[in-house]
Amino acid sequence: YFQGQLNAMAHQIQEMFPQVPYHLVLQDLQLTRSVEITTDNILEGRI
């Protein structure tokens, strides 16, 4: 994955969860590489 793709995914998640800091979303995406998994992590309070 290149950074631009991760940034696009992070923006997509931020639209759904504007209360979660962008850098935390991006940090999780770098591990998961998945909008779905990061979204689940937010919903389950891991982020």
Rank of each mutant, 00 (worst) to 15 (best):
N7Q: 15
D28G: 02
V20P: 03
M16Q: 09
E36S: 12
V25S: 01
A8V: 10
H11T: 10
L6K: 02
E36G: 08
Q30P: 00
H23V: 08
E15C: 14
T38A: 01
Q19F: 14
N41W: 04
T39C: 10
Q30C: 13
L24Q: 06
V35F: 09
I42D: 00
F17K: 02
M16N: 07
H11L: 15
L6Q: 03
F2H: 12
E15H: 13
L6A: 04
A8W: 14
Q19E: 11
Q12E: 09
D40M: 15
G4Q: 14
Q19V: 05
I13P: 00
M9T: 04
M16W: 08
L31W: 11
L31V: 12
L26F: 09
I13V: 09
I42P: 00
Q27E: 11
G4A: 13
A10Y: 05
D28Y: 06
I13R: 00
V20L: 09
T32E: 01
P18G: 04
L29P: 00
R46A: 04
Q5C: 14
T38D: 00
Q12V: 12
T38C: 08
Q5E: 14
Y1F: 13
Y1P: 11
N7K: 14
E44C: 12
L31Y: 11
R46V: 05
I37A: 09
D40T: 15
V35I: 12
R46D: 02
E15W: 10
L6R: 03
V20N: 02
I47N: 02
L31Q: 11
Y22G: 04
V35Q: 06
S34D: 07
T39N: 03
N7G: 09
L31I: 13
I42Q: 01
L29N: 00
E36D: 09
N41H: 08
L24N: 04
H23Q: 09
Q5Y: 13
N41Y: 03
A8G: 07
Q12C: 14
I37T: 10
Q12L: 12
R33Y: 13
Q14I: 13
T32G: 02
V25H: 00
M9W: 15
T39D: 01
V25N: 01
V25D: 01
R33T: 06
G45K: 06
G45W: 06
D40P: 01
G45N: 07
T38S: 03
T39R: 12
T38P: 00
M9N: 03
A10H: 02
D40F: 15
E15R: 15
Q30K: 13
T38G: 00
I13D: 01
T39P: 00
Q30A: 11
Y22A: 06
A8M: 13
H11S: 10
H11Q: 13
L43C: 07
V25A: 04
R46W: 07
Q3M: 09
T32D: 01
V35R: 08
A10V: 09
L29R: 00
L31A: 10
Q30M: 15
E15D: 10
L6E: 03
Y1V: 11
L31R: 13
L24M: 09
V20Y: 09
S34Y: 04
T39M: 13
Q12A: 12
R33Q: 13
F2M: 12
L43K: 12
L29Y: 02
I13T: 01
P18L: 04
E44Q: 15
E44P: 01
N41E: 01
D28S: 05
